[in-house]
Design a protein around this nucleic acid. Structure first.
Lengths: 252, 252
DNA sequence: CGCAGGGTTGAGCGCTCTCAATATAAGTGG
DNA sequence: CCACTTATATTGAGAGCGCTCAACCCTGCG
């Protein structure tokens, strides 16, 4: 429940104690409006600057935390791209989310152990937010308390949206929803809403959407044939966003 | 974000202000170890006794809150049984959970509006926990703060489990998982683990599990034929819990 | 250049859905 | 209390969506 006892080798410690190369503060971070500090005023921002205990580089394929690890911190994506996944007793694997800049991972571990594994899909960097600090600071800063609760609530709401997708949508509706969701998140981060690079494999998309990788591949091809998108391996260009919305609207 | 502005007619107000018929405190509640106060010591318990702003009766079929309602409180099931569900723009409906004594509903609304509708499946009663009070008290009572965070985290973890179920399991695995989950929750509340009354319809079970009601019905019959359970409408008796576990283990 | 991981595409199957009829339970009003 | 209505559950027959199995292709990299 306290700050991580074991520090990863690539960890850059924060100033209060150890030296570090780069500025590690929320107030100087261009992702702050997408992240935990969203909505805080300048004074509050300065108060929580020390909440970023450290930054940590995560090479492609490495895990930030794994199922069963004792919970210590929430992790914010500073750069790069992640998936979270879980595996049940019988070996069934499920990707529970994809995470990009400013998004938070590991919240389901609060009060116990992480219930999933967070794996980087490209060379990435995370901010380590020790729970003990968040806990402490959110007692004194009502804005942070609210923001933390709001972030947790949004994660629950997001999961419910995925449950709707998995429980009620057909395969093509799932993929269309997925693409539009990615598009929306990319545009908020200043990237093109219509052209992006998928960091995950067809298998990972399939796991997230409750489909087999072949089905995902076929759907990509089918969307391309219909003029909705252009796909070439991991590169995607959305050509007809309205058409994608129509895929959802066309209920039988 | 403050205490509910509109009070439901059947609401029994708490002592600080208005009279009421029954004791409305956590310390006198036999569900406290399953609910928000779990793990608090006696002193802390007394401090949060006033957190139950009111109790409210919810006749079968009524909603405690609905999608889009401004968030004001978290609701704890005092007695009875609930479902939460959401409907998307195209009319797809998804049951996101079933809730029994001591379980909390509405947390996904924190900081905004409820994202689902909570409907009672039998005449029930809920405790109204105004968020403003929770917020205030959890600043002064670290145990409550932790418990709140833990409850939110468990809800996220639960949702991930459902995502695994919906994304990776076959129909019969889903129903077996569902029955074992119900059994576990009933036994914690002092009911029989092997014999219980389903409060929800086949359609609601189906929606929750991502199946059609006919499929659910067929699976019940099939489980019965295999000697795993006895079903008669809403009455279920588990005859072979090990067999149900085998349904899950038998991966092809 | 060869290899490995990832992606595409085809053929056929089977699980779950759709449509439909019937049964049973639970209300509802006379 | 009973006839009628409505909601819920069961079961069957057939169709189709997505899966399985398999072959082949593409791309990056040692």
């Amino acid at each position: 429940m306290n700050a991580p006892t074991q520090l990863h080798p690539s960890t850059q410690l924060h100033a209060n104690g150890a030296p570090r190369k780069f500025e590690v503060t929320c107030s100087s971070c261009n992702l702050r409006e997408l992240c935990l500090p969203a909505g805080l005023d300048e004074e509050q921002l300065r108060m929580i600057d020390n909440i970023v205990y450290a930054r940590r580089r995560v090479p492609r394929g490495d895990a930030v935390f794994q199922t069963g690890d004792g919970f210590g911190a929430i992790y914010a994506v500073r750069s790069g791209f992640f998936k979270t996944s879980l595996v049940d007793a019988e070996g069934r694997e499920q990707v529970t989310g994809f995470f990009m800049g400013g998004e938070l991972m590991g919240m389901e571990g609060i009060g116990g152990a992480y219930q999933s594994t967070a794996t980087s899909l490209e060379d990435s960097e995370v901010c380590v937010l020790p729970y003990s600090l968040i806990e402490q600071l959110s007692r004194d800063i009502p804005g942070l308390q609210r923001q933390l609760h709001a972030v947790l609530a949004r994660e629950i709401a997001r999961d419910h949206g995925v449950m709707l997708l998995l429980g009620s949508m057909r395969a093509e509706e799932r993929l269309a929803t997925f693409l539009m969701n990615l598009s929306r998140r990319f545009v908020r981060r200043g990237y093109s809403p219509t052209e992006f690079h998928l960091r995950m494999t067809r298998e990972e998309i399939g796991s997230y959407l409750g489909l087999k990788l072949e089905t995902v591949s076929r759907l990509f091809s089918s969307f391309q044939k219909d003029g909705l998108i252009e796909v070439q391996q991991k590169h995607v260009r959305i050509r007809d966003i309205g058409g994608l919305e129509q895929v959802l609207a066309a209920r039988r």
